[in-house]
Design a protein around this nucleic acid. Structure first.
Ligand SMILES: [Mn+2]
Ligand SMILES: [Mn+2]
Ligand SMILES: [Mn+2]
Ligand SMILES: [Mn+2]
Lengths: 145, 145
DNA sequence: CACGAATTATAGCCTAAGCTATATCTTGAC
DNA sequence: GTCAAGATATAGCTTAGGCTATAATTCGTG
């Protein structure tokens, strides 16, 4: 019989797992940004209109419409044809989490000496790859110095 | 006549620009990872074979083949049918830059208290969004403490 | 040196994300 | 109340990045 001694995963496999994770993260990154921004618009204007979403995301209107369709599919938003877009409870919860993480990432970058403008720019991409574990480390670092 | 006084960009426009940048970065992130890893394979084995590239990236072999085609199109790699893949000078330079940035990002994360394993995992995605300005800040922080 | 195994290429499919052009619906001004 | 302007939806295209199945090539072994 073949032995089934648990093997330590090969380095190649471990590296592949990291790339896999990075690709997974990337596939939800856009959703996170849309949800956070729709939350902003709801807070500012009471509702999020597709035209405003498109403007703030820097995409064409049909692109925003399609993204909203995906948000609805994933249970993060609701809307009816030709009406505004609203976050579901799940969407709202996610928006809050994403917003807090965004702030923490910017604060961490600034704390280690990154200029404000740059921090805000880079954080928009970095944030999505910051795991809960890393986020907690950032929070510890920011509070105890 | 309409005035052409230079306007401060609207907040929506600024935010859109950040998202635009994040999307741009994301479109080169995969190329960077492939190039860095092909560099590793060349150093370890003298050449990078498509099968090894696929294994380390955690993708199917045709996916790696297609990625290599894109690298060739962008002038980062060369190869002939059924032969190994090699970096061009541009590819080698990029690989070196990407490798150094990766190390710095991991070091910074560890320095602020992120566990090693987590740092390595998160860095794989984070690195691509770290601008030159942020990278220099990381280096300053790491050297002077 | 032939042939089977391993490797690479190709064909054909899918989804996400972007775009432009155009159709459809809503709404405010008259 | 109409209707033109504005907002949204839809159609149809592109590219990147995945996949499986299969064809073509290379190479080691006998
Ligand atoms: Mn973001
Ligand atoms: Mn954000
Ligand atoms: Mn990476
Ligand atoms: Mn890397």
């Amino acid at each position: 019989m073949t032995e089934d001694i648990p093997q330590a995963p090969s380095p190649a496999r471990e590296q592949a797992d990291r790339f896999l994770r990075a690709r997974e993260v990337q596939s939800v990154a856009l959703l996170e940004d849309y949800v956070e921004m729709i939350g902003d618009l709801m807070a500012e204007m009471g509702e999020a209109r597709v035209a405003d979403i498109a403007e703030r995301m820097g995409v064409a209107q049909p692109t925003a419409t399609k993204a909203v369709a995906r948000l609805k599919r994933e249970g993060l938003a609701i809307s009816r044809p030709y009406r505004g877009v609203f976050l579901t409870e799940a969407g709202g919860t996610l928006a809050e989490k994403v917003r807090a993480r965004h702030r923490t990432v910017v604060a961490l970058l600034v704390a280690v000496g990154v200029p404000e403008e740059t921090a805000e720019l880079d954080a928009e991409g970095i944030e999505h790859h910051v795991s809960d574990s890393t986020l907690r480390a950032f929070e510890r670092y920011l509070s105890q110095r």
